[in-house]
Design a binder for these strands. Structure first.
Lengths: 204, 204
DNA sequence: CATAAAAACAGAATTGACTCAATTTTAGAA
DNA sequence: TTCTAAAATTGAGTCAATTCTGTTTTTATG
C-alpha cells in the first residue's frame, strides 16, 4: 500500500498545506477561500474535503506542526533548567511564547483556538486538546526536575502546580492574541508577576 | 423618543432573544437558522440584522445576561465571605460554576467562547472580555476583603493573585464545557486542588 | 494484460449567513 | 389633518463553505 497512491496522497497533502499556509498568511483565514486554496494546490474542492473535514482542519494541521516544534524546543529547558525556580519557569514560558508567533499570526491563533473550542470532537479539536495536555505535562516535568535538583519543595503537588502554571499562561496568551496591539514583552512581564506568587510559595 | 417606536423596538428585541434562546436550546447553535429565528420572532431576516450584527451577537446577548446574574450572585460572597481562605475561594467559584449551566448549555458556552476569541472586536467579543475582567475584579475584591479581615497576608500581590485564580478557573471551565461528559463536581474538586497550593502560600 | 473492486477525484448543486435597494412606518412640523 | 424626513423593515440576492453523485484512477487478482 505504499505505491503510487500513497506518494500522490502525501504530495497532495503537502501541496494543500503549503497553499493554505501561504493564503492564510496573505489573506487571513476568512480571506482564504477554499476555491483558491484548491486552485493553488492544483486539486479540486472535493479533494480538499477528502483530505480535511473542514477549513478549520487545514489550519489545524499547520498549527499542530508549529506547537510540536515548540514542545521540542521546550525539551532542552526541562533537561537543563536555570538554577532558579523563577528563571526556569520564565525561560520555558518564554520559549513557548516567542516561538508561537514565529510562523502563525495572531489571527491564525485566534481562529485555531476558536475552532478547538467550537468543535472539540473534530480531528483538530482533539489534537489541540492533546497539545495543551502535552504542554502542561512539560511544565509538570520541569517542576519535577526542579524538585529533583532540590530547588522546589518535595511536598508540593507537582501535577496541580503544572496545571495552574499552564492554565494561567494559556489564558494570558489567549487574551494576548485577542488584542492586536499587545506586545510580547508585556505578556511575559505579566506572567512573571503572576508566577512570582507561586515561586515564593514553592521555592526551597 | 420613548413612544411607539421605542416600545416596538424593545418588544422586537425581546421576541428575537426569546425565539433564539428557545431554538439554541432545542436545535443547538448551528442548528438554529436565522430564517427560523426570524419566523419565530415574527420579524424578517433583515430586521434581525438591524438589531444584531451577526448570529454570534444574538447568542452574546443571552450569555451576557447570564454572566451578569453570576456577577450579582457573587457580590454576596465578597461582602460576607466564609472565615477561611480556601472555603471563600471555593464558595465564590462554586457560585460561578453552578450558575453558569443553569440557563446555558455547554454547547452554547462553547460557541460563545469561540466567537469571543474569533471576533474579539465585535460587540459581543468586547462584552465578553469585559465580563471576564469583571469576574477577575470580583475575585480580586474577595482577596482584598480577606486581607482586610486578616485572613490573607497583607504583602500578597492581590491583583496578580486574582488574575491567577481567575485564569486558572476559566481555563478549567473551558476544558469542562469542551467535554460533554465532564461533571461539575469533578471540575470543582480539580480547581480546589489547584487552589490549595495558593491558599497555603497566602493564608496568614 | 484484462478486469473488477476500491479509493480518490471533480465540480455542479445545496445550504445558510449576511447584504442591500426598495418599501413601509413613525414622529413631528405646519 | 396632511405632509415630509428620518428610521426601520423587508426579502430577494450574494457569497463561500460544504455536500453529493457520477467519473476516473489505482490496485489487486486471475
Amino acid at each position: 500500500m505504499s505505491g503510487l497512491r500513497a506518494r500522490q496522497k502525501a504530495d497532495r497533502h503537502r501541496r494543500i498545506i503549503e497553499a493554505a499556509a501561504a493564503l492564510f498568511r496573505d489573506a487571513g483565514y476568512e480571506g482564504a477561500k477554499i476555491e483558491t486554496i484548491a486552485a493553488q494546490a492544483e486539486v479540486s474542492i472535493g479533494t480538499i474535503y477528502n483530505y480535511y473535514q473542514n477549513k478549520g482542519d487545514i489550519l489545524g494541521a499547520i498549527v499542530s506542526m508549529e506547537v510540536n516544534e515548540v514542545l521540542n524546543a521546550g525539551h532542552g529547558v526541562v533537561a537543563n533548567p536555570p538554577a532558579n525556580v523563577g528563571d526556569a519557569l520564565d525561560t520555558l514560558i518564554g520559549i513557548y511564547i516567542e516561538h508561537s508567533l514565529h510562523y502563525l499570526s495572531k489571527e491564525m491563533w485566534r481562529q485555531a483556538m476558536a475552532i478547538s473550542t467550537q468543535l472539540p470532537d473534530s480531528p483538530f479539536g482533539q489534537a489541540y486538546t492533546a497539545l495543551d495536555r502535552a504542554l502542561t505535562e512539560q511544565i509538570r516535568a520541569l517542576i519535577a526536575r526542579l524538585q529533583t535538583l532540590g530547588l522546589v519543595r518535595r511536598d508540593i503537588d507537582g501535577q496541580a502546580l503544572g496545571e495552574l502554571v499552564f492554565n494561567n499562561m494559556n489564558m494570558m496568551f489567549i487574551e494576548f492574541v485577542k488584542r492586536d496591539g499587545a506586545r510580547i514583552a508585556e505578556l511575559r512581564a505579566a506572567i512573571r508577576r503572576q508566577n512570582r506568587i507561586l515561586v515564593a510559595a514553592i521555592a526551597v
